[in-house]
Write a protein that binds this DNA or RNA. Structure first.
Lengths: 283, 283
DNA sequence: GTGGATTTGTAACAAATCGTACAGTAGACT
DNA sequence: AGTCTACTGTACGATTTGTTACAAATCCAC
């Protein structure tokens, strides 16, 4: 029950100061949700007892009762986005729902600010290294192929080639690392090594408890749903593509030129079929 | 600053119970926003001091400091539902919609019947070849790595190795081919060659007008949204994963055994981090 | 203008909460 | 096996917070 609904029935019996209180709490419910009696009193320009009397008039035992009610109504709104998705390990939840929710959550997690924080070090780095664990390989590939089209010196580091490839990394570089729950030892150690070398670490992982999260300058947490026996990499792919898009925007003309060159090359080598599809296929 | 961002930098220094606390508060931030130290302690199954120590480790004076920070972050989102919608994802909104729609469409397209039709030839084939165009590479990778875990003789055919790799293909094999709109010449010609050899073709493409659709025994059509300058491969990834799941179901015990073997191998080689985090991290 | 009723603020009280000191326990390394 | 480190819970003190009692101020009516 919202604060408005609580006030409405008794609004004709409110005293002047109580009316001011009502006005204040409807304008900003967090005053009663988070604040103390004294806080609210000062904000309204009155004294604590008036706040308590106000709560009583609304039908509660005291301010605590009112606060409880408001908090209950609010926590509903707060928990929804994260809990609706929850952990995939629970029951054999409908795959479809969990996948679409997880994809949706990617957009939720990568708001303007975070996306910029993730993309900028990638755009400005001299070399970009991409590492991944097991289930996130598709995301790493998506990032690798996308970034390669808009900037040079992008390297997808495969497991066996880790040592050889990373030898030249330094503080002007950025490493993007994908890894989730059963963290691959090689990914983490590689990340640690890179971090020690001064390489900026951008981590795509599963939450603040990930070992990557503490190593990285910037990170983002994704929820990974299960499809059949395995984890889905759809969220990582979407995240990778959003990062690519943002990096492209930051690089601007430089990225455009590179794309144009690539297009020209494809054109010249006849990589693609002519636009007109063959209509007379035979079984 | 969100609770996740506060936890991430120090997660390698958290003790086991502190880690449990971290999980609880990330799952439901209202616990720390509204609850008391005792509430949280009981919910987590620990004692009040551990909660306080947790807050200290996050860099606050005590629980009150942490609570204050969380409340500030939360009250932003509480103010008005209407304001919240307008603010955040300015340019991302249309992308978000199109991506989620496309992912949803995958589930529409791959109903029981079609999924079976796609999976069966893959499950029963002697060799499975996977080919892909440009934008669908991530999907091909997802299929390749997924199938490799549940059955032998799965080969992802890279562009340059096409000829060499496919030389042994015959009528007992199945080829899965991903390609979209600007169809890659090499994919199509390879598909045609394989079809001529009697190989069963399973196509993931963009519609009935695709050149692949006429070559394939079974195919499915996906819609491909754009993310920034490039096409998204999220739909192909989801499709690939659904196919993997179905193939796994059809293979039954055989797939399970293979997964178990793989797990054992991983276990033996210490591929993954042990669940327990390092307790004595030092700067 | 005075009496009464209502409203509002000051001050004291009681309850609950946070934070800390201390002790016990489990685990690691020698 | 022993010692030491580090983690965790119990008990207590100090502060904050909600609440209530009482007095001052205001408003209305006669």
């Amino acid at each position: 029950m919202s604060i408005e609904d609580l006030i409405a029935p008794v609004n004709d019996r409110l005293t002047p100061t109580e009316r001011r209180i009502a006005r204040a709490v409807t304008d900003d419910p967090s005053l009663v949700a988070f604040g103390t009696v004294t806080d609210l009193a000062e904000r309204v320009g009155t004294s604590p007892p008036s706040i308590v009397r106000f709560a009583s008039k609304l039908g509660f035992e005291g301010f605590r009762g009112l606060q409880h009610e408001i908090r209950n109504g609010l926590s509903e709104r707060l928990i929804r986005p994260s809990v609706r998705i929850r952990r995939p390990h629970g029951s054999m939840a409908p795959t479809r729902q969990s996948v679409t929710d997880a994809v949706d959550a990617v957009f939720e997690a990568l708001d303007e600010k975070r996306l910029t924080a993730l993309a900028t070090p990638i755009a400005e780095a001299r070399n970009v290294w991409i590492l991944s664990g097991e289930t996130s390989r598709a995301g790493a590939h998506a990032l690798s192929s996308g970034l390669s089209m808009i900037r040079p010196h992008v390297t997808l580091v495969e497991d066996h080639t880790t040592g050889r490839n990373l030898s030249g990394a330094d503080a002007t570089d950025t490493a993007v690392i994908f890894d989730f729950e059963r963290y691959r030892r090689s990914s983490i150690t590689a990340a640690r090594t890179l971090a020690d070398l001064g390489v900026a670490i951008v981590a795509i992982t599963d939450g603040p408890l990930s070992p990557l999260a503490s190593l990285a300058q910037t990170w983002c947490g994704l929820t990974i749903p299960a499809v059949g026996p395995f984890d889905s990499s759809a969220p990582t792919v979407v995240a990778a593509e959003m990062i690519v898009a943002r990096v492209a925007r930051e690089l601007g003309d430089s990225a455009r030129e590179r794309i144009d060159q690539l297009e020209a090359l494809w054109e010249a080598t006849g990589t693609f079929l002519t636009y007109r599809p063959r209509t007379n296929g035979h079984a």
